[in-house]
Design a protein around this nucleic acid. Structure first.
Lengths: 159, 159
DNA sequence: AGTTGACTTAAAGTTAACTTTAAGTTGTAG
DNA sequence: CTACAACTTAAAGTTAACTTTAAGTCAACT
């Protein structure tokens, strides 16, 4: 079974223009052509496209993906280099996931904050709220109760 | 305690030019100015900058962040809208994390693949390998053993 | 053989998010 | 009062990753 660029585009959910762009950037040296110059994607090409997608989705720039592909085409003499690239990317993903988790923690706090504000009808509930009424997991986000008199000219906003 | 743009830049690890750009895009309407026009960041502005960072790091475009900030400045009348935005972003982050996890799964497989290939000195070990010698968690990535005779003209690559 | 839809390329255009530059102003230290 | 580092703005420049356009070619069908 072989696919044209339009067919593989549908199959993978990637625009055909994007696939052509990747080819132009040297990411698809393994894709063969018909005698008339039409790209013919084989079943065996799909894992290659999937690893490209994986690296792209995890934030690797096209040029770096090309280096990896170049090593793959070079064959067994570049196994070490390929392993290093994959391991580095794995660590990058772990780091990204940790960051995502801490952003999610903050969004969970904000969700609680606005749900509480919604019930009370005002964000000011949080200025008045005592730390003991805030769930423990959200303590680190809570600002100390301000005793300052906020001037009318200040652009203070409740988040 | 107040900070100039350079000071807040150091404190948050964001380039001063980026902070000025955010201000120009309307993300920082709450930042006051000295009589001479110098930005003066208050302690109270830091949570605002942190929520902006959180939304940015989780992929929200600057223009959408501006909408959220606009609602914050509008005050208690826009609590519902703010809650909706935060909840939508929370769901977006959950989705991103699931995607990241599946990319990580693939990178773990690739790590195993190249470690094994490194020991064997060739990626061809995987073409010869029986499914029973592949750890169960990696079965879904394993291609069936090809019995086809690969022509010398084919650009087949081992990934 | 002709039509037609999908393919080809090179080149130009788009977008987001900054960054840099240039010319000028502010504010602190001596 | 002067020097000077850090601030200000508007405008132009940068980069990555596509997308679009235009002009032409391929191949399947009648």
């Amino acid at each position: 079974m072989v696919y044209t660029v339009g067919e593989i585009s549908k199959k993978l959910g990637i625009p055909a223009s994007t696939i052509r762009y990747y080819d132009k950037e040297g990411l698809l040296p393994f894709v063969e052509r018909s005698s008339g110059g039409i790209r013919m994607f084989k079943e065996d090409d799909i894992p290659g496209l999937e690893i490209i997608e994986c690296l792209k989705k995890t934030g690797m720039p096209i040029k770096e993906i090309k280096h990896f592909i170049d090593y793959c085409v070079e064959g067994d003499s570049k196994i070490d280099e390929r392993l290093s690239i994959i391991e580095a990317q794995k660590n990058a993903v772990i780091k990204q996931m940790k960051e995502m988790q801490s952003m999610l923690d903050m969004l969970n706090y904000k969700t609680w904050y606005y749900q509480t504000a919604k019930e009370a009808g005002t964000c000011a509930i949080h200025d008045r709220m005592d730390l003991k009424d805030v769930p423990k997991k959200y303590h680190r986000y809570k600002l100390p109760k301000s005793s300052a008199i906020i001037p009318m000219t200040s652009k203070t906003v409740s988040w």
